[in-house]
Design a protein around this nucleic acid. Structure first.
Length: 557
RNA sequence: UGGGGUGUCGCCAAGUGGCAAGGCACCGGGUUUUGAUCCCGGCAUUCGCAGGUUCGAAUCCUGCCACCCCAGCCA
């Protein structure tokens, strides 16, 4: 069912590079900064980088771009590794770190100084901004720009030794303060940060910037195609400048693609944090979060996420993918793989008056309608059952295909029944439905020719197991919650509805955490990774079944 | 009014001079013991706009227009 990967510009570039011998092996890398949790947008970058390497028989490195100790931590490193692994990708070799190249990077900085291509600048941040100019006006040269190599070398060494305060000095490349591309107006290579680093401890108090580090990291690792998002496009000339001016061992090339945006979703780190800190969700792995951890807990499969990334394609045009595509991907995967089971969210008592009291029988029902190899399950059937309250009406129009008083319905995998009577409480709500079992309808249509109107799921009252079922819906009601600074106004108040009185089949209650099911006629559900256990089952709704009825006109009462 | 990008169906996206793939969504119809799945059919005389080159253009040229990114000692 995996359709062939669509052609896109990166594939074309790689094919040509291979064909024309510019590279012998494709080497890519996924370079997250360990300063937050991975989300759907990262899944896209992961899919592109690992996917391309896989497809062309090359390799992909997992490399943490840890050049800024201020906001990074080991906790994120561990979480990111876990997420990448869960998505089903294996990085080549060990996990890598920009920080393990700090010695080399420093040596290269000295090289540039010796060549007269870098200098130590004493301008503070505010002054530097003034000298940088604006988008339409050129900048001016720093008064420190003409320091000689010897002085610069000495100053750089003393920066490294910790002799200067944070912000008092930086190392800059000497390029062109009037360049129309702001990135080339003497960019910063090193800044002073007297912070200990999660990998290198207190060994350094100066840290390289992204620009001075990334391309060289790629060159050290032999990365051939350094794939990033569009906002780095303006940095490419600088990326190339370092590669051209340093004695690096290989020649990586940077390519950019449009980052993934998805409708009804926010992925900015700041906004996700706001959702967590504001208590609008239950944490970074809340099943409504577009984080990898959240989607995992929601019941998404790695295959579906990967498929979605392929479906959306890879281009240079910024756009918004319809979340319906993601929903399609997960339904498609789960429809094929998830075993079927019965769950009743709002139980309504059903008594079969012509079924012998105290007796029961065991029915065998397939776990999947079209995949016999998935086997079958056994269900107890008896006089007292429960059905979904929504599946019974005292009266209804012809479009209602469930149980109606005086009419017939098929109990899925079991018999046809006919509702004969009901009981109500003082509030007028139906508490019990009485029905007659139509004999000879197990696997057969009624002999009298009066067919059942529809099919509903059911559970044996005495053996069904209570469960908590969390029904989830889109977190936002607006397709572009991101367009507003006040995105919280679009929060969907019904993004989570907890069903406390649900019932499930005994075997379902006993399932392992992360086991996935299709609860027939409802949707796909997963045993919660964190809180599910056989004594107190908890299921999260991954996605509902497509429904061409409830939203539309056909709703018959 | 600096530089860099992007504009093909409601959304994503192929296409690189020979006469508009595909997916999602949507709308019909069929099958069905899940109002699911599955199956069949429909869905851009038109490619941001205007000119031009050509027998022929979404693809080449010119000029417009719209939108996105860049002025962190973030990545």
């Amino acid at each position: 069912m995996e359709s062939p990967a669509p052609r896109h510009f990166l594939r074309t570039i790689i094919e040509e590079d291979l064909r024309e011998g510019r590279v012998d092996e494709v080497v890519t890398r996924f370079p997250p900064e360990p300063n937050g949790y991975l989300h759907l947008g990262h899944a896209k970058a992961i899919s592109v980088n690992f996917g391309l390497a896989e497809e062309f028989g090359g390799r992909c490195h997992l490399r943490f771009d840890d050049t800024n100790p201020e906001k990074e931590s080991q906790e994120y490193i561990d979480a990111i590794c876990e997420d990448v692994r869960w998505l089903g990708y294996a990085w080549a070799g060990e996990v890598r770190f920009a920080s393990s190249y700090f010695d080399q990077l420093y040596a290269w900085a000295e090289h540039l100084v010796r060549e007269g291509k870098a200098y130590v600048c004493d301008l503070d941040a505010d002054r530097a901004r003034e000298f940088r100019g604006t988008l339409t006006e050129p900048g001016r040269n720093s008064p420190y720009r003409e320091r000689g190599p010897a002085e610069n070398l000495d100053l750089l060494e003393r920066m490294r030794a910790g002799e200067f305060d944070e912000g008092s000095k930086v190392l800059r490349a000497k390029i062109d303060m009037a360049h129309p591309n702001m990135n080339l107006r003497d960019p910063i290579l090193y800044r002073i940060r007297k912070r200990s680093h999660h990998q290198t401890g207190d060994r350094w108090c100066i840290y390289p910037t992204y620009d001075f580090a990334h391309g060289q990291e790629d060159a050290i690792e032999g990365v051939t195609h350094s794939i990033c998002t569009l906002e780095f496009e303006d940095h490419r000339p600088l990326y190339d400048w370092f590669i051209d001016n340093l004695p690096v061992a290989s020649r990586p090339r940077q390519y950019e693609f449009a980052r993934l945006n998805t409708s009804y979703t926010v992925t900015s780190k700041r906004k996700l944090k706001q959702l967590v800190d504001g208590g609008h969700v239950d944490g970074w792995d809340d099943p409504r979060m577009p984080t990898i951890a959240g989607m995992r807990r929601r019941g998404f499969t790695p295959a579906a996420i990967r498929r979605f990334c392929e479906m959306v394609g890879t281009s240079r045009a910024t756009g918004v993918a319809d979340v319906a595509m993601l929903e399609h991907a997960i339904r498609d995967d789960l429809n094929a793989h998830a075993p079927r089971a019965f769950c009743v969210l709002n139980p309504l008592r059903l008594v079969l008056t012509n079924y012998p009291d105290g007796e029961s029988e065991t029915l065998t029902v397939a776990k999947h309608p079209s995949r016999e190899e998935l086997g079958s399950r056994e269900l107890t059937f008896g006089r007292e059952l429960v059905i979904e309250a929504d599946d019974f009406r005292e009266s209804a129009n012809k479009k209602y295909k469930r149980l109606v008083l005086g009419k017939r319905v098929r109990l899925r995998g079991a018999y046809v029944i006919e509702a004969t009577d009901l009981e109500k409480d003082s509030a007028g709500r139906v508490t019990t439905v009485y029905a007659q079992l139509v004999r000879g309808t197990l696997g057969e249509d009624p002999a009298d020719g009066v067919k059942a109107k529809g099919v509903i799921q059911w559970l044996h009252a005495a053996t069904a197991r209570p469960a908590t079922v969390r029904r989830y819906d889109r977190l936002f009601t607006d397709p572009s919650p991101d367009r507003d600074e006040d995105f919280l106004q679009y929060l969907n108040p019904e993004s989570l509805v907890v069903m406390d009185g649900a019932l499930v089949e005994p075997a379902v209650a006993a399932a392992a955490p992360e086991a996935r099911f299709q609860f027939e006629r409802l949707g796909y559900f997963v045993a919660d990774r964190c809180s599910h256990n056989p004594a107190a089952p908890v299921f999260n709704e991954t996605i509902g079944l497509r429904d061409s009825w409830s939203g539309g006109e056909g709703q018959g009462a």
